[in-house]
């Protein structure tokens, strides 16, 4: 066990009760109206390579009850592990299948969605929620058209480049409904939710 450094102790929320509530409300809105980028109050300062947005989500949702899986880039960072351990107390899951949450900063090397906990038919909530840092959100006409609960009308949204092959994986994830994973994308100070209920809109 490495010594605890000052870096691990700093960068949390100064006013956690109100800041976690504010972040939660944005996350709730993001999942209730999927694929709609919303401003995320980012006031956490975790050590690199953990982006502040992911840090804010982690401070809001993680605690000793939630095993967290870190992607290799994060898992390799001792300061990140120490920061998460100090501020959230969440145990690190060795396998994606055992994780309640997954923090991902290198989405191009994301394991298949099927590698994460999918829940069971009787308890579909026992699944992993992935929190993925991306560069930006595309809502232009080339982005896939999405629909489902929370959509007044279909919306165009893409968070990962085509070559990540996310679209096919997402269709497979949706086919498992009500099992499957939920995703929260964070791009800088924006967040967008992709709950398992969201599906590709039929193209005419």
């Amino acid at each position: 066990m490495a010594a605890v450094t000052a870096e691990a102790l700093e960068g949390g929320f100064a006013r956690p009760v109100f800041q976690t509530q504010a972040v939660f409300r944005v996350l709730m809105a993001a999942l209730a109206e999927p694929a709609r980028p919303l401003p995320l109050p980012v006031e956490a300062a975790p050590p690199a390579p953990l982006p502040p947005g992911l840090g804010a989500v982690a401070l809001t949702l993680l605690d000793p009850d939630t095993p967290v899986w870190l992607d290799p880039a994060l898992a390799a960072s001792q300061p990140v592990r120490a920061w998460l351990a100090f501020h959230t107390g969440a145990p690190v899951a060795a396998e994606p299948m055992d994780a309640a949450f997954a923090l991902v900063v290198d989405p191009l090397r994301l394991p298949p969605l099927a590698a994460f906990a999918q829940g069971t038919a009787e308890y579909p909530d026992r699944s992993t929620t992935l929190v993925i840092a991306v560069d930006r959100f595309d809502t232009d006409p080339s982005a896939p058209l999405l629909t489902g609960p929370g959509f007044e009308a279909p919306r165009r949204f893409r968070a990962l480049p085509e070559r990540a092959g996310f679209q096919d994986q997402w269709a497979a994830n949706r086919a498992l409904f009500p099992r499957g994973v939920d995703v929260v994308f964070v791009a800088g100070g924006l967040v967008a939710g992709l709950p398992r209920s969201t599906r590709l809109a039929p193209t005419e």
Binding site: F24, L27, A32, T60, L61, D125, G150, D182, P195, R196
Partner: peptide, 13 residues
């Protein structure tokens, strides 16, 4: 936090 996580799951399903 525990209730908030349950709410997010409820919204997703």
């Amino acid at each position: 936090r525990m209730i908030r996580r349950a709410i997010l799951k409820g919204i997703a399903i």
